[in-house]
Deep mutational scan, measured.
Amino acid sequence: TTVEVQGVEYRFDNPEEAEKFAKKMAKSLNLRVELHGNKWRVE
């Protein structure tokens, strides 16, 4: 599972970890998070 934060990609073996990371990043950067296939995008 991939998390893309403002163009930078982070890879996770565990989808739940990816989701937690994406939501945490979105909250700290005041952005929103969307799931596209198996990629979380924070923008």
Score class of each variant (00 low, 15 high):
T1R: 09
T1S: 10
T1E: 05
T1G: 07
T2R: 08
T2E: 06
T2W: 14
T2L: 14
T2K: 07
T2D: 05
V3W: 02
V3M: 01
V3Y: 01
V3I: 02
V3H: 00
V3S: 00
E4Y: 13
E4K: 05
E4W: 12
E4N: 09
E4L: 13
E4Q: 10
V5N: 02
V5G: 01
V5R: 01
V5D: 01
V5T: 02
Q6H: 11
Q6W: 11
Q6L: 15
Q6M: 13
Q6I: 10
Q6Y: 12
G7T: 03
G7K: 03
G7H: 05
G7P: 00
G7N: 05
G7M: 04
G7E: 03
V8A: 06
V8S: 05
V8T: 08
V8H: 08
V8G: 03
V8W: 07
V8Q: 08
V8I: 12
V8L: 09
V8P: 00
V8M: 10
V8E: 06
E9H: 07
E9P: 06
E9I: 13
E9A: 08
Y10L: 04
Y10N: 01
Y10E: 00
Y10C: 13
Y10G: 00
Y10R: 03
Y10S: 02
Y10F: 11
R11H: 13
R11C: 15
R11Q: 11
R11A: 09
R11V: 13
R11L: 12
R11D: 06
F12T: 00
F12Y: 04
F12R: 00
F12L: 03
F12C: 14
D13H: 09
D13Y: 08
D13I: 09
D13R: 08
D13Q: 10
D13V: 09
D13M: 10
D13N: 10
D13A: 10
D13W: 08
N14F: 08
N14E: 09
N14C: 15
N14T: 12
N14H: 09
N14Q: 08
P15H: 07
P15E: 07
P15A: 12
P15W: 08
P15I: 06
P15N: 07
P15M: 08
E16L: 12
E16I: 12
E16V: 12
E16W: 12
E16D: 12
E16P: 04
E17F: 05
E17C: 15
E17L: 09
E17M: 08
A18R: 00
A18M: 01
A18W: 01
A18N: 00
A18D: 00
A18G: 05
E19C: 15
E19I: 06
E19R: 08
E19Q: 06
E19W: 10
E19H: 06
E19A: 08
K20P: 02
K20N: 10
K20G: 07
K20I: 13
K20Q: 12
K20D: 12
K20S: 11
F21R: 00
F21M: 02
F21A: 02
F21P: 00
F21N: 00
A22R: 01
A22D: 00
A22Q: 00
A22E: 01
K23Q: 09
K23L: 11
K23W: 11
K23T: 07
K23P: 00
K23E: 06
K24W: 14
K24D: 14
K24C: 15
M25V: 10
M25P: 00
M25L: 10
M25I: 12
M25W: 07
A26H: 01
A26E: 03
A26V: 02
A26Q: 02
A26S: 05
A26D: 01
A26W: 01
A26R: 02
K27L: 14
K27A: 15
K27P: 01
K27S: 13
K27R: 11
K27M: 13
K27H: 13
S28F: 13
S28L: 15
S28T: 13
S28R: 14
S28V: 13
S28H: 13
S28E: 15
S28N: 11
S28K: 14
S28M: 15
S28P: 03
L29F: 05
L29K: 05
L29N: 04
L29A: 04
N30A: 05
N30V: 04
N30W: 04
N30F: 05
N30P: 01
N30T: 03
L31T: 06
L31E: 03
R32D: 06
R32L: 09
R32I: 10
R32K: 12
R32G: 09
R32F: 08
R32T: 12
R32P: 10
R32Q: 11
R32E: 08
V33I: 12
V33Q: 03
V33G: 03
V33D: 02
V33S: 06
V33A: 15
V33N: 03
V33H: 05
V33W: 07
E34D: 07
E34G: 07
E34C: 15
E34V: 14
E34A: 11
E34W: 13
E34T: 14
L35D: 03
L35W: 13
L35V: 08
L35R: 13
L35E: 04
L35C: 15
L35H: 10
H36P: 01
H36G: 04
H36I: 14
H36W: 09
H36Q: 11
H36F: 11
H36T: 10
H36R: 12
G37E: 09
G37D: 11
G37I: 04
G37S: 05
G37Q: 06
G37C: 15
N38I: 04
N38K: 07
N38P: 06
N38A: 06
N38T: 08
N38L: 06
K39P: 01
K39R: 14
K39E: 05
K39H: 09
K39A: 08
K39S: 09
W40K: 02
W40L: 06
W40G: 02
W40S: 02
W40M: 04
R41V: 15
R41F: 15
R41I: 15
R41T: 13
R41H: 11
V42G: 03
V42E: 04
V42T: 05
V42L: 09
V42R: 00
V42M: 05
E43V: 15
E43P: 06
E43Y: 15
E43C: 15
E43L: 14
